[in-house]
Amino acid sequence: MLENYLLSTATHEERQRVIAVEAALEVIKATLSDTNDGNGVSFQLQAAEKHIKSLADAIQNAIDKK
């Protein structure tokens, strides 16, 4: 999905970052769809926003360490 936002001149690192962010989004989607804690969508989106960077960083670190 996000790869369509990259220009054809994107570097390998930029492409890897998009993959990590997409993976983080999938984890967040799965987590939110499985959560029925009574909080509204706005609360859940704010929670996701807080964690997307750190989750993408962790995924990218795991990829980079091979």
Results as ranks from 00 to 15, higher is better:
M1A: 13
L2E: 01
E3M: 15
E3G: 14
N4S: 15
N4Q: 15
N4C: 14
N4P: 11
Y5T: 15
Y5A: 15
L6R: 08
L6H: 08
L7G: 13
L7H: 11
L7E: 08
T9G: 13
T9D: 14
T9S: 15
T9K: 13
T9V: 11
A10W: 01
A10K: 06
T11Q: 06
T11C: 06
T11E: 07
T11P: 10
H12Y: 04
E13N: 07
E13H: 03
E13F: 00
E13S: 09
E13G: 07
E14H: 11
E14F: 08
E14Q: 15
E14V: 08
E14C: 12
R15L: 02
R15D: 04
Q16M: 03
R17P: 05
R17I: 01
V18H: 08
V18Y: 04
I19L: 09
I19G: 02
I19V: 14
I19F: 03
A20P: 05
V21I: 15
V21G: 12
V21P: 10
E22Y: 00
E22Q: 11
E22V: 06
A23L: 09
A23R: 09
L25N: 08
L25R: 11
L25C: 12
E26W: 00
V27P: 01
V27T: 04
I28V: 13
I28N: 10
K29I: 07
K29W: 01
A30N: 13
A30Y: 01
A30I: 01
A30M: 03
S33G: 10
S33R: 15
D34V: 03
D34N: 14
D34K: 14
D34Y: 04
D34G: 11
D34R: 15
D34T: 10
T35L: 10
N36A: 07
D37E: 03
D37K: 02
N39K: 14
G40P: 09
G40Q: 06
V41C: 08
V41T: 12
V41F: 10
V41N: 12
S42P: 06
S42Q: 12
S42E: 14
F43G: 01
F43S: 06
F43L: 03
F43D: 04
F43R: 12
F43W: 12
Q44I: 02
Q44P: 05
Q44L: 13
Q44S: 13
Q44H: 13
Q44C: 07
L45I: 05
L45T: 04
Q46A: 02
Q46M: 01
A47V: 00
A47R: 03
A48K: 02
E49G: 06
E49T: 01
E49M: 02
K50F: 00
H51S: 09
I52C: 11
I52D: 05
I52F: 03
K53W: 00
L55V: 13
L55C: 12
L55Y: 06
A56G: 10
A56N: 07
D57G: 09
D57I: 05
D57C: 07
D57E: 13
D57T: 08
A58W: 01
A58F: 03
A58G: 12
A58E: 12
I59C: 10
Q60I: 00
I63C: 06
D64G: 09
K65M: 08
K65G: 09
K65C: 05
